[in-house]
């Protein structure tokens, strides 16, 4: 069996001192998979994603990414270079004046020069068919445009895994369709957190449910 890209064993999280948000979460993500995580509001889906890239510290359990067990910030910094995380609210992610600058931010963090970063960023915008947005002020884009731009801003780092947090939030039907077809063409393995049943059904290769009591339901094929 091929090693998992990301595997999680008995993971638990609780807010400082308070009761568990969830515990006993275990799963593995393999290349080519698109795993959907369903669950009620407040059950910790976003928290789960942020644990995977070390933005929060797990209370218990272990995270293994690309064959390395990750605990320290330094280990997670390495993970973040290979895992692209698209945040729920694009406004939290887009903080540079223009779209192009926002795209360059990640590649520069990977160690590219500014000129190289501009080249790969333009290429990525081209690839997603939004080259015309390059010099637009990201603050003023439409909701759908912002979503595609945030996706571009992590894809440009050529991640092996994508984490998507409620990607269809606040998108109209047209933007949603466009996002779906874009995502379906991507080679990356994905973990998608979403409420949008139809969207998940068309996108995910399997799904699971994060439950309040903690246990991740057994992984099973998508059921409506």
């Amino acid at each position: 069996m091929v090693d998992a890209l990301i595997s999680v064993d008995d993971l638990g999280y609780s807010y400082c001192g308070r009761q568990h948000l969830f515990h006993g979460v275990s799963f593995a993500l393999h290349a080519g998979e698109r795993l959907a995580v369903l669950g009620d509001n407040g059950v910790g889906k976003t928290t789960l994603l942020s644990l995977l890239v070390g933005l929060r510290k797990a209370r218990s359990g272990s995270i293994t990414a690309f064959g390395t067990r990750c605990e320290s910030e330094a280990e997670f910094v390495a993970v973040r270079k290979r895992v692209g995380y698209v945040f729920q609210d694009p406004d939290d992610q887009l903080f540079c004046p223009t779209v192009l600058e926002d795209l360059c931010f990640g590649p520069i963090n990977l160690g590219m020069s500014e000129a190289e970063a501009v080249d790969v960023s333009r290429a990525m915008l081209e690839q997603l068919g939004i080259a015309s947005l390059a010099d637009k002020v990201s603050f003023q884009l439409s909701g759908g445009q912002k979503r595609i731009v945030t996706l571009a801003s992590v894809l440009v780092m050529q991640p092996d895994v994508l984490l998507l947090d409620e990607p269809t939030n606040a998108l109209d039907a047209h933007a949603r369709e466009r996002l779906l077809s874009t995502l379906l063409e991507l080679p990356q393995a994905m973990i998608v957190v979403s409420h949008d049943k139809d969207f998940v059904e068309s996108l995910a290769t399997r799904s699971c449910t994060l439950q309040p009591a903690g246990l991740m339901a057994p992984l099973r094929p998508v059921v409506a």
């Binding site: 942020s50 992610q93 931010f105 801003s153």
Partner: peptide, 22 residues
């Protein structure tokens, strides 16, 4: 949240222009 999204894109603050501009 904005800072976390920067960290998620592999940003590590240092003593350099990229950090100050960002």
């Amino acid at each position: 949240r904005m800072r976390n999204s920067m960290r998620a894109r592999a940003f590590v603050a240092g003593t350099n222009r990229h950090t100050w501009r960002s």
